[in-house]
Each structure stands twice: as structure tokens, then as C-alpha cells.
């Protein structure tokens, strides 16, 4: 559940980057014949692409380890898992 919550949070961050990129305009920033078009800022989009990939891979890693943990804690309550694993 918490992992899904984190994913929602990262989606929010991505959406925020896209919002900032589109503040100057909505056109795709590709060289074309249109003159002085209000195009979107390509830099935040390029940057957030990296963050999306990283976020995705972290998500995958976390889910794998949760699957491993689920064998002994089928209910997946984080407080229970924590109690069993704290010295």
C-alpha cells in the first residue's frame, strides 16, 4: 500500500515537471516552419524522463522484495513486518 502511495507521489512530481515545461506554450519543441510559435520548454521534459525511468526501476525492485517478504507475512502489514525484524 505504501509503495503504491509512493508511486502516486512520484506521478505527482512528474506532472509538476510537465506543468512547468508547458508554462510558455503547448507546442511540441520541434524545428518546423511555424514562426515564433509558443513552444513548451524541452529541458524539464528531458530531465523528468530520467526520473521516470529511475522511479520505475525502484518500483520494480521494491515489489520484488515485497514478494519475498510476503512469503512469511502474507498480510503485508508493515507494522507487523517491522516488529518481527527489529532487534
Amino acid at each position: 500500500m505504501k509503495i503504491i502511495a509512493m508511486d502516486v507521489m512520484s506521478t505527482g512530481v512528474i506532472a509538476y515537471y510537465v506543468l512547468i515545461a508547458s508554462r510558455d506554450g503547448f507546442l511540441t519543441p520541434i524545428v518546423s516552419n511555424a514562426e515564433n510559435a509558443a513552444y513548451a520548454d524541452p529541458v524539464p521534459q528531458a530531465v523528468i524522463l530520467t526520473a521516470i525511468v529511475i522511479g520505475f526501476s525502484i518500483q520494480a525492485l521494491m515489489l520484488v522484495s515485497v514478494m519475498k517478504l510476503a512469503r512469511d507475512n502474507p498480510t503485508l502489514e508493515s507494522s507487523e513486518i517491522e516488529k518481527n525484524n527489529t532487534p
Partner: peptide, 19 residues
């Protein structure tokens, strides 16, 4: 199990901070 939990906790916290 314990090492996986500790690692998961670490990754979760560091990733939230990085967001």
C-alpha cells in the same frame, strides 16, 4: 527476511526524500 526489510526501508525513505 531481515536484510530485505532493512533494505526496503532504506530504499523507500531515500526515494521519498529524492521526490
Amino acid at each position: 527476511d531481515r536484510s530485505i526489510w532493512v533494505a526496503l526501508r532504506y530504499l523507500f525513505i531515500s526515494n521519498t526524500a529524492m521526490l
